[in-house]
Amino acid sequence: MHGWFQKILKSGKTKSTQHDRSKDGEDPVVSISSVSALSSSTSPSVRTDRFKPQQSNVALSSELRWRRKYDVFVCHSSALTDIEEATRLVLFLEEAPRSLRCFLWQRDTCPGGAVFTEFCQAVRESHIQALLITPSFVQDDWCNYMMHQALSEGPMSNRMIPVLQNLPHAQYPQELKFYYYIDLSKYPDQGFSMVNKTVHRLLENLVQNEMKLSCISAGLSCGLAGGGGTQEGKVVSEHDS
């Protein structure tokens, strides 16, 4: 009788142990399946974003971008504070991974060269013109001339970025009243980043517009070729009849 009770107790312990082991084994399975379900619902978008080519990278590597020598022409006055601010902006834009090509007159003009000629050429060879507008800029006749030169190259073409620094609203140039501007006085930390994003977005728009024009021209060429072939066949059939 005593042996019979021992067998029952042993069998009960064995079943309870197996049950606990099965529970312990099921928990990782449940957690793995829940994690896999969660990852299947969220990870595809993450993987897609990770391996999706960024538009800015496409714009930077585009052949259209390299048709011009500079990405940004930075125009500023000869005041020491303006030179320092423009230099900081250019160094920020040129640093990787932004890697923009900038024209800064006190750095990129040739000694002994004609400043007027080099400035006008740099404007023509730049995709975008960034104007560092300060009280000194407004009072500088040369800066005003360069602003009008930039406007004449592409009026209302979204190729100009007014960047304000400590400028009262009453002194803002009327020629630029239709342009959105970036106020470094209000956004001292984010201002340079906003300039960088604006430049990249404009470069992306240039690439997209070029692609649209290429598709349109290709479609017109195909249409003209198809129409010419049909007309030629019609003339030949009429001649044969």
Rank of each mutant, 00 (worst) to 15 (best):
W4Y: 14
F5T: 11
I8F: 09
I8H: 05
G12Q: 13
K15E: 14
S16I: 13
R21E: 09
R21K: 11
D24Q: 15
P28A: 08
V29P: 03
S33Q: 15
V35K: 11
A37C: 08
S40L: 11
S41D: 11
S41A: 14
T42R: 13
T42N: 07
P44Y: 09
P44R: 10
S45T: 10
V46D: 04
V46Q: 09
R47C: 00
D49T: 05
R50L: 14
F51T: 10
K52H: 14
P53F: 06
Q55E: 13
R67T: 11
R68C: 07
K69A: 05
K69H: 08
K69P: 03
V74Y: 05
V74D: 00
H76K: 02
S78T: 10
A79Y: 00
L80G: 06
I83Y: 05
E84T: 08
E85F: 04
A86W: 01
R88C: 03
R88L: 06
L89N: 02
V90T: 05
E94S: 11
P97Q: 09
P97F: 12
P97Y: 12
R98Q: 07
R98P: 03
R101E: 09
C102I: 03
F103S: 01
L104D: 01
W105K: 05
W105Q: 08
Q106Y: 08
D108K: 06
A114M: 05
F116H: 15
F119R: 02
Q121S: 14
Q121R: 14
R124G: 00
S136W: 03
F137A: 04
D140L: 09
D141M: 10
W142A: 02
M147H: 02
H148I: 05
A150G: 13
A150D: 04
L151A: 06
S152I: 08
G154L: 03
M156N: 15
M156L: 15
L164V: 06
P168L: 11
A170D: 15
Q171V: 03
Y172F: 15
Y172A: 05
P173Q: 04
L176C: 10
Y180T: 13
Y180D: 10
Y181C: 10
I182M: 02
I182G: 00
Y187W: 06
Q190F: 04
Q190G: 07
G191P: 04
F192H: 06
M194E: 08
V199S: 03
L202C: 06
L203D: 04
E204Q: 08
E204D: 04
N205R: 14
Q208W: 07
Q208M: 10
N209T: 15
G219C: 08
A225W: 10
G226F: 09
G226L: 13
G227S: 07
Q231K: 07
K234D: 01
V236A: 04
E238M: 02
D240L: 06
